[in-house]
Simulated assay, not measured.
Amino acid sequence: MSLQFGFSMNAFREYSTVEAIDAVADAGYDGIELLFDQPFLYPPAATDEEYDEVRAALERTGLDISNCNAFMLTAIEDFHHPSFIEVDENYRRRRVEYTLDSLDAAAELGCDHISIEPGGPLPDGKSREWAMETFVGGLEELAVKAENVGVDVLVEPEPDLLIETSMQFLDVIERVDSDRIACNFDAGHLYCVGEDPAELVETLSPYTKHYHLEDIPEVREHDHTQLGDGAMNIDAFLEAVEDSGYDGYITVELYPYQETAAETARGAMDYLRDHGWA
């Protein structure tokens, strides 16, 4: 099989940066998704020593960076706030500035892309069109920096946020005139909103620069579940990705398993190996 797999650092918040990188390498992955949030390297405040620490650990373990996750922002508030569509312009600006810093951080570490939240939760009293215009305005500013540093900005559709579905993503991408704005295709998120990830691979492949993978329960609740413990047809999805000719990383994202992060990473790799994908 030709697919490459990483595991997301966001399950390892109880670990140090080096411990997380070591655990992912020990679990048998070829890549790791760096989390640009506390307690790890946080771009607005990162030091040269922190960059050196990440580079040294990656070189020692032989891991690639599969993606840089600039979605979660608990250093300021939580996963979704501040968002790109906050009513308070100053608060919204903090998300944009953080993302600009994240583009610089990814470039510093030699990663080709960052993933970001798809706008954010729609604020009370604001129309969807206002939110779309506000989000697109933010993306247009990010696109300028992205083009300057050579790093793509990957919008990640997610349930209950501004961009949930493949069609909503395509609507956004048509509004931004930059090849640097692309898609972080999260298979579980699209499954949650009633779509078939396997069928969408071909539709979104012109824009997809990275994939997230997790399983999802049969009721399609947004609950990242260990591979094989949910209802998704993971084999069909991975077959579609392989058939598309994609040559980047698929990152397993199981952040709810923080109490058993290393064991969970190993279990997901066992599933991929048992099914012939790794």
Rank of each mutant, 00 (worst) to 15 (best):
E108V: 14
D88T: 05
E86S: 13
P121D: 15
Y98T: 11
A106D: 01
P82R: 14
D124G: 14
D101Q: 13
V96H: 08
G150Y: 01
Y98Q: 11
L109H: 01
H113I: 08
R128C: 02
F84H: 08
E89Y: 08
A106E: 00
A143D: 03
I114Q: 00
L100K: 08
A146I: 04
L142F: 02
P121I: 11
H113Y: 08
E86W: 11
S102V: 01
V155M: 11
H113D: 05
V87Y: 10
N148E: 14
L154A: 05
H80K: 11
A107K: 08
K145A: 15
E147N: 07
H81E: 10
E108R: 14
L109T: 02
L154T: 03
E147P: 04
A105R: 01
V87Q: 09
L154Q: 02
P118N: 02
A143L: 02
R95N: 10
V149Y: 04
D88K: 10
G138P: 05
D112Q: 15
E97H: 11
A105V: 03
K145Y: 07
C111S: 07
E86R: 09
G138M: 06
R128E: 06
S115A: 12
M132W: 11
A105M: 07
V87K: 10
A146Q: 02
D104E: 07
D112E: 13
P118I: 04
V155S: 09
P82T: 06
E117Y: 15
R128N: 02
E86G: 12
H80G: 15
P121C: 13
H81A: 12
G137K: 01
D88H: 12
I85K: 02
E117D: 15
A105G: 03
E129P: 09
G120S: 04
Y91K: 13
N90K: 14
D152T: 15
D124R: 15
C111A: 06
G150I: 00
E108K: 13
R92H: 07
K126P: 14
R92L: 05
T99H: 06
P118S: 01
H113F: 07
D101Y: 12
D124Y: 11
V149T: 03
A106G: 04
Y98K: 11
L100N: 12
T134D: 04
